[in-house]
Amino acid sequence: MYENLKNINILYVEDDEFIREQTATLLSVVFNKIHTAIDGQDGINKFNALNDEIHVVVTDINMPKISGIDMSKNIKSNVERDIPIIAISAYSQEDHILEDIADLFTFYLRKPTQIKDLIKSIGDAFELTR
């Protein structure tokens, strides 16, 4: 079922250490490489260092230093390829007043997120950019 996902590398950005470690561990069973970042600034730094290696970015929205929204805007404005970004937030999409939210995020998932839904969203996002 998940064999076609084994070549996907993910940048997972989450400021909550427990959630980050648990989710990254679960994702590592299905995907090739899971790179983690602790906040938006770390996410930008890791993405810039690993740009060509990252296939999908998964990010929390509310984080210290730089939000997932601002991090995603930075990534999108500095790459020439279409990089899928999946947002995960405790807030509904309506809580974020963003004119460009549809352009910024490939998918928007609400916490608590089922791991099967996240895996499906990552696979679907990857396929959209192939």
Rank of each mutant, 00 (worst) to 15 (best):
I38R: 15
I88H: 07
F105N: 01
V30K: 03
D60I: 11
M71C: 02
K46Y: 12
T113K: 00
V79W: 09
M63F: 12
H55G: 00
L11G: 07
K73G: 02
S89M: 09
V30G: 03
V13G: 06
E127G: 00
K116S: 03
N9G: 06
K76G: 03
P112L: 05
P112Y: 06
G43I: 13
A49T: 08
N45L: 15
E3P: 01
D82G: 12
N74T: 05
L128Y: 02
L104Y: 05
I122M: 00
L98W: 07
E53W: 07
D100V: 09
A102F: 11
I44C: 13
G43P: 10
N78Y: 05
D100C: 07
F18N: 15
D100A: 08
I86M: 04
L26A: 13
N32M: 09
V29R: 12
G40P: 13
T23Q: 09
Y12G: 08
P112H: 08
V30M: 06
A87Y: 04
P84Q: 06
A102H: 11
T59S: 04
I54S: 00
K120Y: 00
E53T: 10
H35M: 13
S77P: 05
N32H: 12
D103K: 06
S77W: 08
N32K: 09
T113M: 05
I119V: 04
F126R: 01
E14L: 13
K6C: 02
F107I: 04
Y91Q: 13
K6Y: 04
Y12A: 08
I19N: 13
S89W: 09
Y108D: 05
P112T: 06
I85L: 06
D52A: 06
I115M: 03
K73Y: 05
T113C: 05
A24C: 10
E53V: 10
L27Q: 14
A37I: 15
I85C: 05
G68N: 08
I119F: 01
D60E: 11
I69K: 04
R20T: 12
D15I: 14
T25L: 14
